[in-house]
Computed example of a mutant assay.
Amino acid sequence: MRKTVVYELVSLDGVAEDPDSFFDEWDDVVDAHLASVIATQDAVVLGRRSYTQWARFWPTSDIEPFATFINGVTKYVATSTPLDADWAEATAVDGELVGFVRNLKEQPGGDIGVHASISVAQALLTAGVVDELRLVVAPRVAAGGRRLLDGLPPLRLEAVSSELSPTGYLLLDYRVTGRNS
């Protein structure tokens, strides 16, 4: 069975919205972490807002390793309206998101990534269909914005790895083991 992996850039206070406002440096360790995450993924689930923003930016970007990955990978977009931007390998999710991802997990293939889409990550974490949570925590307090873990039920996580990058970013990888009793 495929794994669903949520990869998010967050501030120290858990804000995931607008990471460009608190991610002002990027180093080789963070790059290597991202490369290891995307190396196993052959599908990505995005929310409508992330899709619209990314479809304007990534097709002409040369920021590697992500540009090549995101432009070539199959992208499923959680939306109830037709996609207005033309981006290779993008398809609107037909039907309910959680059921779609559960079905996708049963199909052959690599990991299913969830990148940048806070509401999608929250819905899938709440439904119990996320297997791994991989975070890059910036050494900044955003002090405002949507937080990744707000509104979730209590979850049990098992630490898989942690690493501190030279510029102070904390790379945290967790396995989601279930809900707290």
Score class of each variant (00 low, 15 high):
E132C: 02
L125E: 01
S162C: 13
N103D: 09
A142H: 11
R134P: 10
G95R: 05
V114P: 11
A127R: 00
G151T: 10
G110M: 07
T126K: 10
A92G: 04
E96L: 07
V130T: 02
G110W: 03
I112D: 00
L148P: 15
L125A: 04
R146W: 08
I112V: 06
S119F: 06
S161V: 08
T177F: 01
Y169S: 05
D86P: 00
V101R: 02
R140W: 12
E163T: 01
A143P: 09
V98H: 03
D173R: 15
A138D: 09
S162I: 05
E163K: 04
R134V: 08
R134F: 08
A143L: 11
R146C: 07
G178R: 04
S161T: 09
W87V: 10
R175Q: 07
L124D: 02
Q107M: 04
L149G: 12
L172I: 10
G95E: 03
G113V: 02
H115I: 06
V93G: 05
L149F: 15
E132P: 00
V141N: 11
V176P: 01
G109K: 09
R140Y: 14
S161D: 14
V141C: 11
V98P: 09
V176H: 02
E158C: 13
G128L: 00
L133D: 01
L97S: 06
V141F: 15
V137G: 10
Q107R: 06
I112R: 02
P154S: 09
D150K: 14
L171F: 08
D111W: 07
N103F: 01
